[in-house]
Design a protein around this nucleic acid. Structure first.
Length: 747
DNA sequence: CGTTTCGACTCAGAAAAATCCTT
DNA sequence: TAAGGATTTTTCTGAGTCGAAAC
């Protein structure tokens, strides 16, 4: 494809050139040529008779392996900064409370998050029904069930229900700890623990203060929940499609599909031919299946505007609901949340993530996904397997006449429910606990402590790969070069993917065509040399690191430090950089909070630069520049040709030894090339503005995923900046365990 | 064993919803 | 004061990572 621009790189400096690696390629232009392979989109009967291999997982892995208890030492400093902790926590509760002040009693849902912590241990369900499930007839289920006794014993041996550590909630400085939860707490578990004279504070489940039984392979001892919610059945609206100028009444199934499609009529998805094509194929299929003499066969003759209008009207209608209607709806929603939104994990009420299974609709891939537009079929209870403890009551199936696809009791995993994706059959979807749950929080802590640990090894690791970059063994050399890239450019590892997926790459899957020479990223001389070396004799579409697999790279990393994998570098670099930048910001006591915030944000910005987000931008700039240059060249060439003299084009060679393409001598062709380039310039320009806007987004992303929150908390404490200035409610909820650190905490 | 596939889990980015801000 | 637009937060699910089982 066209993207071939290669410019000679300025070899002079030693930090020379810049192989910039694009994380996303230019989509396959000819996807259109490739005929879409038949996807039995929906319809697929529940025929998964394959003797699910999952029975295996039930297998008691415990005896056998039980991975070496990695001793991630997350001994959080117990109780340490109690005072601060209280203050911070209080602050966060306060704001939730304030919000709901309005509707006192009902308030629950919103602040409910605060009560996830109430230890409800006692309120264990008495009825120890032995998986009484009216066993679903599904063949697979029974099989897996009996085939493997669940790791019961394991669970059993764990100390049953450990009491939540009561963290002393001493001095609560309080910014009014409003009592919102009273309403609901009262109704159900009035567990508030009073702390000495202090007024009762609602107890928070501070799991991070619990003695750490190291064994993260067991996620819970008891688990109960109410299953998952299914979207309501489709209700036909009877609005017609116009085909070839005439209205057509569609069979319900087809109407449903057409309706899903209609919602996207005014979106960018319509610009993707694949999207329309995939949709229409499925649409035709369902039509001819339901209606023998269906005549709809040409997409271009279809007019969905009536349906679109209908959707708009409905939206409008919804917008104009009366107050009562809104309240009623809200109430209903709250009822649902109450039922499905919580799970009880080892006696503690914890929020559930997305308890509504994915509704049917059209698949929206990112970029030019080959499967974009294919309808996702409606899930039924038979598709869903639930995970809960053995004694727990099996939730009744929410759709009459149906049964759950299976019930398992696997406490080595954290999910509550799972099903197979209908678009990508090998993909598995899950329902998890919320981000603020113990399980999720624990693994977050673990992630950051691995990154912290890397700090101790980074020097050696860097020395090693620097040395290995000169290794004569190409495989080692590739590995070392890849590590350099991962470490410096924060590229992802880059697993192998099949052609059915979006075309994006990471380090190990880089292709020759992804390497360009721009003046964007400073690259070590040796790295540059190696890159050239690995490009030699390969086609643009060949893999740059042909001998590497993520497996291999990670195995190597593991050997250098326990728990180390490619992605740890991202966490480590993001965290360490922010800490460093914060330290660089000179703060004075007389600065206002606002000024301090500016500093904080600036530090964050520096960090994001280091992470390479900016490289992306710079890359776009360079691309534009280069395109313009090429255009100029072409124009000059065109002029020359028109004058009748065909300039001689020497056989130039580019760095990687490839022959440079010559420019055509036919004026028409040249003109065409020019206009193509114009188009690309415009496109890139557009992308650039888009990226610009996204910058803040990626900042948030790294705040959520890569930066150890304790760095920010410590900074805030040291500088008297209220936590809520740097962490919004979501973040605060996600990182309660980080709030207790002292001002002098260091990553 | 080495390689491929599967399963579980994290991360990313788009869309939807909520909130804030302006006119 | 409402409309409506912009901004921020939340939800949702697609896209990755990576270890382990299967081949």
């Amino acid at each position: 494809m066209e993207s071939t621009v290669e410019t000679p790189m300025p070899m002079e400096t030693d930090k020379a050139s810049v192989p910039v690696v694009k994380e996303e390629t230019i989509a396959q232009p000819d996807s259109a040529a490739v005929e879409i392979k038949e996807e039995p989109s929906a319809a697929k009967p529940a025929a998964e008779e394959k003797p699910t291999t999952k029975r295996k997982r039930q297998e008691d892995k415990s005896p056998a392996k039980k991975p070496a208890p990695k001793k991630t030492n997350n001994k959080r400093r117990i109780g340490s900064s109690s005072s601060d902790s209280s203050s911070s926590s209080s602050s966060d509760s306060s704001d939730s409370s304030s919000s709901d002040s309005s509707s006192s009693s009902s308030s629950d849902s919103s602040d409910s998050d605060s009560d996830d912590d109430k230890p409800i241990a006692k309120r264990k369900k008495a009825e120890p029904k032995k998986t009484p499930t009216k066993k679903t007839p599904t063949k697979k289920t029974p099989a897996k069930k009996k085939s493997e006794p669940t790791p019961k014993k394991e669970a059993a041996k764990k100390t049953p229900k450990k009491e939540p550590v009561k963290a002393a909630k001493e001095s609560t400085p309080k910014k009014r700890s409003v009592k919102k939860e009273d309403g609901e707490a009262g109704t159900e578990t009035p567990v508030k623990k009073k702390r000495g004279k202090q007024e009762e504070e609602e107890e928070q489940y501070k799991w991070w203060l619990e003695s750490d039984k190291e064994d993260d392979s067991v996620k819970w001892t008891s688990l109960e929940h109410n299953g998952v919610l299914f979207p309501p059945a489709y209700e036909p609206h009877g609005v017609q499609l116009i085909y070839d100028g005439k209205p057509v009444k569609l069979p319900a199934e087809a109407e449903e599909m057409a309706t899903y499609f209609s919602q996207y009529l005014e979106t960018d998805h319509m610009k993707k031919p694949q999207f329309k094509k995939n949709f229409f194929k499925a649409f035709k299929d369902i039509l001819s299946e339901k209606d023998k003499n269906n005549k709809i066969s040409k997409f271009d003759l279809c007019d969905f505007s009536l349906i679109q209008k209908h959707l708009k009207d409905k939206k409008e209608e919804r917008k104009n609901r009366t107050k009562e209607e809104k309240d009623k709806e809200k109430l209903e929603k709250e009822m649902i949340t109450k039922k499905y939104g919580w799970a009880i994990v080892d006696g503690h009420k914890q929020k559930v993530g997305n308890y509504l299974v994915e509704p049917p609709g059209l698949f929206l891939g990112r970029g030019d996904h080959p499967k974009a537009g294919i309808p996702k079929r409606r899930l039924m209870p038979e598709d869903v397997t639930l995970n809960l403890s053995e004694g727990a009551k099996v939730p009744e199936c929410p759709i009459a006449g149906h049964e759950w696809g299976g019930i398992v009791h696997n406490n080595n995993v954290g999910w509550l429910a799972t099903w197979k994706d209908s678009i990508k059959p090998e993909a598995i979807k899950y329902v998890w606990l919320g981000a603020n749950s113990r399980v999720k929080g624990k693994s977050d802590i673990k992630k950051f402590s691995t990154a912290q640990n890397l700090k101790k090894h980074i020097k050696e690791i860097r020395e090693t790969y620097t040395k290995e970059m000169k290794d004569e063994d190409d495989k080692i050399k590739q590995r070392a070069t890849a590590l350099w890239i991962i470490d410096h450019l924060a590229l992802r590892a880059g697993n192998e993917k099949d052609d059915e997926s979006a075309d994006t790459v990471g380090c190990c899957s880089l292709r020759v065509e992804h390497i360009k020479y721009y003046n964007v990223v400073k690259v070590d001389k040796q790295v540059f040399k190696n890159l050239k070396h690995f490009q030699k004799g390969k086609e643009p579409s060949d893999e740059l690191f042909d001998q590497l697999s993520t497996n291999y790279v990670n195995a190597h990393l593991k050997g250098m430090m326990e728990g180390l994998t490619a992605k740890v570098f991202r966490t480590y670099n993001a965290s360490i950089t922010l800490e460093k930048e914060l330290a660089n910001m000179k703060m004075t006591d007389d600065m206002s909070v606002e000024e301090k915030m500016i500093m904080y944000n600036r530090a964050n910005r520096e960090k994001s630069v280091a992470k390479g987000h900016d490289a992306q931008m710079g890359k776009l700039d360079t691309v534009i520049k280069e395109l313009e240059e090429q255009k100029k060249k072409l124009q000059a060439h065109l002029k020359a040709v028109k004058k009748g003299k065909i300039p001689e084009q020497p056989d130039e060679e580019t760095e990687d030894g490839k022959k440079k393409k010559k420019m055509p001598d036919d004026p028409a062709k040249i003109e065409k090339q020019i206009s193509l380039i114009d188009e690309r310039i415009a496109k890139t320009e557009h992308k650039k503005t888009e990226k610009d806007d996204l910058k803040t987004v990626s900042l948030t992303t790294s705040k959520i995923n890569y930066i150890d929150p304790r760095i920010s908390v410590a900074w805030a404490k040291a500088n008297d900046v209220p936590i809520d200035r740097i962490f919004n409610k979501t973040l605060r909820a996600k990182f309660p365990w980080a709030m207790d650190v002292d001002a002098d905490w260091r990553f």
